[in-house]
Design a protein around this nucleic acid. Structure first.
Lengths: 226, 226
DNA sequence: TCTATTCCGTTGGAATCACAACATAACCAA
DNA sequence: TTGGTTATGTTGTGATTCCAACGGAATAGA
């Protein structure tokens, strides 16, 4: 193994609290392997099963979905230290509806799900720590996805936006907060048009419901319409 | 403990493959407790933290979300052997945005997350089996939520419907299949109006894209528009 | 300063949807 | 059969959104 992996505990949530000197032995025991993908190379293919999951060490993975017409649509981008196909591989999905491929030359660390979950054996404490991190990671992902659904289940831009802002307000424990998106990214997240979003933000400001300057938002009054 | 819990392995996915005679000892060791909720009683309250999760033994739980206006909106209903707040408690969400309450008199089995995850100790094999089930359960949930998002991220009823049907077709490995929804439930799932959905189904039939009779659907041609 | 670029807001027309109201069909029970 | 209930399809209108095109503001680089 040519790469220094002892920094993983600091950078990758799955290795949190794993002693640096235990990283390589753990990886060894799990039979994980480093694979280098050429640009455009497919790691997990639509229609097949993923019995591994990946941690990106360098480069970028793109998670794409093929719609009814067979057209590709990038769902998610996985940067270094991010993970790919964790839920899909653990859930044992038989026929993937997404494909995972390298946007550029990419190094990944591949884990065999069967060995990670190690059915039938009692894992050592370090392995156990890894498993716990995995579980917590999945729980956090489920919570995030649930929140996104609660936004997308609203039909108007106004409601989606207010639901999102309300959530951010709770998260920051304040009526004033900044969001991690510019307008285009926010529109993408809410699954609406950027221009229509801008227009809606303008209306809400004019009505005195919110105040918005660039990334900075403020909730001005409890919405009482409806 | 007055209740017979030895049937749990057959009925509840979290206890799958746990030997029936090991159920009660495991529950004992985890310090899980049975709680009976009166109708309307709140189990997990919006704004607070859930450091337990629940398995419903009898009765029904309602997971509700309070929108920007404070109005309640039922997100999910948990029937017997279903679980509530698994992801939320494991993710350690500090301020819940949903509340969980009993729709009728309800018995739940409550698990303390800290003791289930048992940080710092190596669990016994039965406990380990339980943890694995928990992890797989979370992974399956994340996959389901991801699929729902892929549907809701489409903006038209037609696209949402076709995406859903396409997924069902893959799941059943056939162009002919039945769906587990009536029209109203399908509309709720797709987050659209029932009547508009009916109209759209009609159009797709007329255009020869699909065939639909009650629950039975068939994909007739690869959609090539766009 | 000048220019190019990116980000953001605005506008108008076309497409789509929500909503309500009604029509039809299927089903069940009295 | 009759009546009631539920599931589903149809229609029309108003509201909302998409989409494309444009203009202005802010920013960065030469």
């Amino acid at each position: 193994m040519t790469r220094n992996l002892t920094t993983l505990p600091l950078l990758c949530k799955l290795f949190k609290s794993v002693p640096p000197e235990e990283v390589e032995p753990l990886i060894e025991r799990l039979g994980a392997s480093i694979k280098t993908l050429r640009k455009g190379e497919v790691l997990f293919r639509t229609g097949f099963k993923a019995d591994h999951f990946a941690i990106v060490l360098s480069g970028v993975l793109a998670v794409s979905r093929y719609d009814v017409n067979g057209h590709r649509n990038i769902v998610e981008q996985v940067d270094p230290m991010g993970t790919a196909a964790v839920a899909l591989s653990i859930a044992g999905v038989e026929r993937l509806r997404v494909s995972v491929e390298a946007k550029e030359k990419t190094e990944v660390l591949l884990f065999d799900v069967a060995r990670v979950l190690c059915p039938g054996r009692v894992p050592d404490p370090v392995h156990l720590r890894f498993l716990r991190n995995l579980t917590i990671n999945l729980a956090e992902k489920a919570v995030m996805l649930g929140r996104k659904i609660s936004i997308l289940s609203h039909r108007t831009i106004e409601r989606r936006l207010l639901t999102y802002l309300h959530g951010q307000s709770i998260r920051n424990n304040s009526l004033k907060f900044e969001i991690p998106f510019d307008r285009q990214a926010l529109a993408d997240f809410l699954c609406v048009e950027r221009s229509a979003l801008s227009a809606e933000i303008g209306k809400l400001c004019k009505r005195g419901v919110i105040s918005a300057r660039k990334n900075h938002f403020e909730l001005l009054k409890e919405v009482d319409e409806d």
